[in-house]
Design a protein around this nucleic acid. Sequence first.
DNA 1: ATAATTTTGTGATGTTAATCACATTTCTTA
DNA 2: TAAGAAATGTGATTAACATCACAAAATTAT
Lengths: 232, 232
Amino acid sequence: MSKYSINMNQDCRLCPFVSTAIEKLSDCQMQQLTDNHIVVSFKKGDPIIKQGTYSTNVIFLRSGLVKVHITGPYSEQIVKISKAPQYLGLPTTFGDAVNQYSITALDNCELCFIDNTTFRQLLKESEHFSYQIIQSLCRYEIESFRRCANRTQKLTRGNLADVLLDFANNIFQSDVFTIPISQVEIGNLIDTSRESVSRMLSEFEKDGIIRMTGKQMEIINKKSLELISQNG
Amino acid sequence: MSKYSINMNQDCRLCPFVSTAIEKLSDCQMQQLTDNHIVVSFKKGDPIIKQGTYSTNVIFLRSGLVKVHITGPYSEQIVKISKAPQYLGLPTTFGDAVNQYSITALDNCELCFIDNTTFRQLLKESEHFSYQIIQSLCRYEIESFRRCANRTQKLTRGNLADVLLDFANNIFQSDVFTIPISQVEIGNLIDTSRESVSRMLSEFEKDGIIRMTGKQMEIINKKSLELISQNG
DNA sequence: ATAATTTTGTGATGTTAATCACATTTCTTA
DNA sequence: TAAGAAATGTGATTAACATCACAAAATTAT
């Protein structure tokens, strides 16, 4: 249902979203990147990477918000919410010919699709670039261990507090924001049912910790949320 | 309590455990690796990497079995059991100056400690080597997403079945083996209490799926285990 | 605008597995 | 080999959530 607007051959040197990993590339390498990518706009709900399909391009998220999700044995699990600027799905692009997880736009996104061969050429030619990529892959994995430990050990209350704190502190950098996902999705993010999410949000509101008007969220008592995050 | 036996300067060309990533290195690079690593023996229970300490070396597991574990908000979580030959803790070595998780020997292990600078030099000089490392980091992360989804979505029965199947199919490649971890550790691996592990193992035994004598385990009905793995 | 669809709120009930308690067995080590 | 420590077995009780059921609200499509 979506029409993707496509811009060919934007100059990466002028791109305000350009990844830090790219900064050290030579002019010639930069030109190669510029010549071998296209910029595409996606709308809320559009699939960017789809689990089970062949992975074809390296994707860089210039702007917007996405969810990384995987089909588990019984239900969909949202692994994480990621915001621009960053590469998307490097592990699934280089780790397997077939995508092992999905990425979906949560709002309007601008993405660069970079030719796989070009990207590999850059890795080959720039030691700095490939080391940056290695480092970011390493950090992703550490993060993912940490997330998994939290998710499985904390009670639902604590996990929900973490989601709200993550939105406020990392994603939106404001205590007032519009929740970009449904309560079903929050459930998928913290491995609980949507009913429990609903009940607990009501509870937070009753306790004066948050104020909600539809999707509009205001964190009133962040200290309480942090305590709940720590002590379940 | 352990005495590490150390061998300096083993020739990596002669090492039967040498990582596939290394195979394409030039003789000169291989010599550099040989000159800048030491081989150390660890005993069951010895810490190899300790969360919170500085990461100093790249470690290659030549032989033996280890557990990768992380201190979660309430308890220890075993992320995975890994066997030789493979690199250990690359993510925590390159992702952060301080180790973000621990690795502990589960039996007698032989490890190569490779100088960090030497390893980075190899990454820099061999495109093939660094691409191999990138690929394996990518695969680790995909695996870790999958493990987390299984752990949080499956019931304890299914997770326990998975552990037994993993030992039989991947780690020991035999349906008869000695469980290398305690029931507490099995609990830490599948996020459940040791009591539940004990009860469920008894149940498996009662149902004629396994036979246990102390740590000695025999899988009698693998089909049943696979069904339990799938259907909880 | 209005119908259709999706999302959310909330009560009642049931299940899984945690926790507590204590006995028993197995492993360590002096 | 005996004593101490660690690991395991098993029952009783309880807590956290899932699930079911349905109503209400909000969003989207026609």
